[in-house]
Computed example of a mutant assay.
Amino acid sequence: MKRIAIDMDEVMADFTKKHLALFNADYNEAITLEDLQGKKLRDLRPHLVDEIREYLKDPTYFRDLDVMKDAQEVIKELSESFEIYIATAAMHFPSSFTAKYEWLQEHFPFLDDQHFVFCGDKSVIKADYLIDDNVYQLERFTGEGILFTAPHNIHEDRFIRVNSWANVRDYFLK
């Protein structure tokens, strides 16, 4: 059985929606997803990089992220034909471990929690495929890297791209 590793933030969980909402409320801004095309929030407000990163240090930040549209259904379908692993770069924010684990258990109870990998560098993941929004994770991955569209990676063209979970379904199951 082939193995698919899937990133959590911006692939399964809508990280940017919450990040923008918090930032906009705290700084009386109106930054939109369109403003982030090809950029991250810290690129738009470099003088607030430390403040932007502080949100992610909150141990509860990752607990209530919205699930990406169709992610639950498609991952469930994929799990019938593929071995599924969740590979999340939790080491960037170690305080996120519990929140991420609980989020995965709540929203993806059909997945084996022994297949949750909390790591930093995903090149250590032994899988046939890695679905991720971060190019730097795909660059060193030894299997086939699949780029999940997010505002910050919109101009990237070096990897197979999927724009939605419907695209993921089509790629793997059709």
Rank of each mutant, 00 (worst) to 15 (best):
E73G: 05
E73T: 08
I75H: 05
K76D: 07
L78G: 08
S79C: 04
S79W: 03
F82E: 10
E83C: 11
I84K: 12
Y85N: 05
Y85A: 08
Y85W: 13
A87T: 01
A87M: 08
T88H: 08
A89N: 06
A89D: 09
A90Y: 12
H92E: 15
H92F: 12
F93V: 13
P94N: 03
S95D: 09
S95R: 09
S95T: 08
S96E: 07
S96I: 02
S96Q: 03
F97V: 15
T98I: 14
T98R: 15
A99C: 13
Y101I: 11
E102C: 14
E102R: 15
E102D: 10
L104W: 13
Q105K: 15
E106L: 13
E106R: 14
H107M: 07
F108C: 02
F110Y: 05
D113S: 14
D113Y: 15
D113K: 15
D113N: 15
D113E: 13
D113C: 11
H115F: 08
V117Y: 13
F118W: 08
C119M: 09
C119P: 11
G120S: 05
G120Y: 08
G120H: 10
D121G: 03
K122P: 04
K126Q: 08
K126L: 02
A127Y: 01
D128L: 06
D128E: 08
Y129R: 04
L130G: 00
L130E: 03
I131P: 02
D132R: 02
N134Q: 14
N134A: 11
Y136A: 07
Q137V: 01
L138A: 03
L138E: 00
E139Y: 02
F141V: 00
G143Y: 00
G143V: 00
G143H: 00
E144M: 05
E144D: 10
E144G: 04
G145L: 05
F148P: 01
F148A: 04
F148D: 01
T149F: 13
H152D: 03
I154L: 10
H155K: 14
E156C: 06
D157C: 09
R158Y: 02
F159L: 04
I160F: 04
I160H: 08
I160G: 01
R161C: 10
R161E: 10
V162W: 09
V162D: 06
N163I: 11
N163M: 12
N163H: 15
S164M: 04
W165H: 09
